[in-house]
Design a protein around this nucleic acid. Sequence first.
DNA 1: GTATCTGCAAAAGTTTTGCAATCCA
DNA 2: TGGATTGCAAAACTTTTGCAGATAC
Lengths: 131, 131
Amino acid sequence: MRRTEQRSVILEELRRASDHPAADDVYLRVRERLPHISLSTVYRNLELLATEGLIRKIEHGGGQKRFDPVAEPHSHFHCSDCGRLEDVPFAVELPELDRDDPWVRARVIYGGRADYFGLCPACAGTDRVLP
Amino acid sequence: MRRTEQRSVILEELRRASDHPAADDVYLRVRERLPHISLSTVYRNLELLATEGLIRKIEHGGGQKRFDPVAEPHSHFHCSDCGRLEDVPFAVELPELDRDDPWVRARVIYGGRADYFGLCPACAGTDRVLP
DNA sequence: GTATCTGCAAAAGTTTTGCAATCCA
DNA sequence: TGGATTGCAAAACTTTTGCAGATAC
């Protein structure tokens, strides 16, 4: 993987973002700094960076895939109302799997992840009135 | 929601499937029985059935959304190699959230789900040689 | 009878790909 | 220099939508 300005800026802008942007959000942000960059370059680099393990691709409701600058597995919170996608600010431990279970033994399980869904502060109204 | 033959057959075929098919897989199966059905009807019905809570739409790696005939939340196992999506055959309990945590208090959390990823028996080779 | 539903076709939205030119090591 | 990378345009793919006619209740 070579170092190119496009690749660096894409990674920088993704790391600066806190909202798990989709490819075309990244494109818009990167374009502020590199006005001639093309959307395919953004797609190709996000894909490559995810393959190389520097970032993470997230499946999320809605048409687009989102990208996470944090490659380490962690939990997300999805707002069912506005679609916001946030990091859960603490580690969620999944229960240990029973290694003797035949279903578990028949598979190689790399890991697991817990995701939560509900209403974010803005949609729940708790960002205005705190109880 | 009215009862139509198309809707019934779509639901039946989804319930008969064990592989969490995508919309166009459902379309292919339904077409065996209703050769004149259109893909949009399949999309519209899967969407409606999911909205009504009879089935569940699953976000999953790869371009297409998948559908699950089981509406109750349960865990899935994603094969990183071949893309197979299976039900985890036991309940995975998520740890209780700390209701006094300010992050938790600021949100309305409907629920969570644990998903696992790794290699399925075929891709791990354990369907041929059992240890 | 009327609101819902279907099929068709077209549109919309997202992601991928072919290719010639350019760039990095 | 040579392989990786880019920009552009076109293609591919998935999903949604408009509309006229058919259907369920």
